[in-house]
Design a protein around this nucleic acid. Structure first.
Lengths: 338, 338
DNA sequence: GCTGGCACTCGCGTGGGAAGAGTGCCAGGC
DNA sequence: GCCTGGCACTCTTCCCACGCGAGTGCCAGC
């Protein structure tokens, strides 16, 4: 177990390194933080911290920088979440309130997060799977062609073309529409399959094939997880990353383009609060020099999607966590209102 | 007027520089391209080309690199469009044919373009303003709340909430839906305003306010130009940009995040064929060291949107133009089929 | 257990010198 | 008149050696 002072030293190292982006030495530490001890003592503490793997030195004659493990300890034990100031909160609210539709909410959220944290922002669209159905609309485009439009309680709209095995009359279509909506409107996606299971039985034999086709398309749409879209922004902030550019930035940009990777990344965060994954804690190799700060957000008490930022492990964790948490909170409010 | 050989020299310089990314000297030129003359002669030609502003030298004792003006001449007079090979064309077609909906078409197009050209790809969603209405759907969500869903012939779906000034019965809604669709289905967006002008007159006085509100929301949706969304991809290719990283890459990333800038950029290209804007020809300052190769695409003979790539001025113009043109052609086909 | 002192280690910036690439110009030849 | 080979010149770049300074680790003393 580390003594209280050694923890203070670690905290000071993290803070200084995040501020200056340069390895921090014992002398500089005692000058900037009044630890009440001499550089020599700090050196001993640093040696101990290094033995434990919390800090490392890039070369022999340089100061120390925190390791992933060091940041982890810092985030878990040494730092809180820095709350947003009142003006900041007002600004967030004002900025988000101007949104006109769901796309705009997400777009504004991304911009906001990127600006506040000066990092790359990632916002997942409110997910389908946890939502409820608001309405299902069926439109006849041709005798054997139906457009299926699904509207969710988060205001999201999904559409699919359905090629029917047989022509399908307007009357049957209206019938199906009515029956379908009376069963699934307001219900959770996960409940829909068993709610519509016996629906084809209510129709004439020649229409059953079409009804089944429409229903299975609907179910596909509901479960289709790769339809979990997301929006990213603030990639220009990557240029503030470090000095050894191409090597660091390239894998990050590549990872950011792989929506699957990002979705998995956000999905991994199970915490009810803000989740921080530091450096090598991220499974994806390209993100081994980055940290991901994420949190769930939702219109009710319940999280329907995630948002977060991706930045260098050397980031201002308390501030970033505060910004992410605040933005998630306000986006939730906006979604609940609409 | 430049002699034939000097044009050849310029062409050789562009090709070599694009290949090697290094200033090219007179000796290397004569070795790689059999111009039939000695380095000394080439040097004279180079001096002339430099006087005319087609090439420049970074420092006194270095080779020459093309200027924007040099690239311009190369693109206009010295190089054709390199057609895709048959296997490449098949690959493009196969890749695009797997798309399930419009979002997927655009997403695949972006990936494809980025991969083919190894540059940043930008694809504009098929624009609303030139499209026709396929269907308008109205859904009653609450007594005084209607959801308006607009479906276009390109498969795009736009939805809007409408808060009605007065409660609006299901019967009136069905009436409005039917009248609306019979008037506007299949018509061009630009024709819609005058087609629905007198529609409120057909309704009871107490419903007219609501009808007008719904109609004006519809018109807003139609003209809303900032709804011209786009998708970008392949930003990781920016890391191949050059050596002086942060300074070059940052403004480009920033410009790419400004959708307005990109839309303007694509919009400027009026040509029916492939348009190339080189370096300082781009109005936006951040893109002064990049070239933009763009082309319109569409489901019929008519272009409904643009797509293109953004890359360093030192790019393989013939190849890039060929890829952009081919992708646009196939996307058009896919859109026409669906 | 803290402190001051001291020797040691390296990374980094500086400066000089050599190498190499490329140019411009000139005089001669087809 | 245009092309060519030759030559002197100009820079950039690479390399190496050197010295400085930051920072460390250890030790003896309080």
């Amino acid at each position: 177990m580390l003594s209280e002072r050694r923890l203070q030293v670690l905290r000071a190292i993290v803070q200084d390194y995040v501020g200056t982006e340069e390895p921090v030495g014992s002398k500089a530490l005692t000058e900037r933080h009044n630890l009440g001890v001499s550089p020599a003592t700090v050196r001993n503490d640093m040696a101990a911290l290094e033995d434990e793997g919390y800090i490392a030195q890039p070369h022999t004659s340089a100061g120390r920088i925190p390791t992933d493990k060091g940041y982890r300890l810092f985030v878990d034990k040494l730092a809180g979440v820095k709350p947003m100031t009142a003006p900041e909160r007002r600004a967030i609210q004002n900025f988000l309130e101007g949104a006109v539709d769901l796309d705009d909410v997400v777009a504004r959220t991304v911009r906001l997060l990127a600006q506040l944290t000066r990092q790359v922002a990632v916002v997942q669209y409110p997910s389908l799977t946890r939502s409820t159905v608001r309405h299902v609309e069926l439109l006849s485009l041709a005798p054997a062609r139906v457009m299926l439009v699904l509207i969710t309680d988060t205001g999201r709209v999904e559409q699919r073309m359905v090629d029917c095995p047989a022509p399908f009359g307007e009357a049957s279509l209206a019938d199906l529409r009515a029956r379908l909506n009376s069963r699934v409107a307001g219900r959770r996606f996960t409940d829909v399959p068993k709610l519509v299971e016996d629906l084809p039985d209510a129709f004439d034999p020649e229409d059953r094939g079409t009804v089944s086709t429409v229903l299975s398309t609907l179910l596909e749409t509901l479960v289709e997880e790769n339809e979990e879209r997301l929006m990213i922004g603030g990639t220009a902030n990557l240029t503030r990353f470090g000095h050894d550019f191409p090597l660091t930035i390239r894998p990050v940009l590549e990872a950011l383009e792989e929506q699957v990777v990002l979705l998995k990344l956000l999905g991994e965060a199970k915490d009810p609060g803000v989740t921080v994954r530091i450096g090598h804690e991220n499974a994806h190799e390209g993100l081994n020099s980055t940290s991901v700060v994420s949190v769930g957000y939702g219109s009710g008490g319940e999280a329907v999607a995630k948002l977060g930022v991706v930045g260098p492990t050397r980031m201002d964790y308390p501030g970033t966590m505060g910004a992410v948490r605040a933005v998630a909170r306000y986006v939730g409010q906006i979604l609940a209102e609409s």
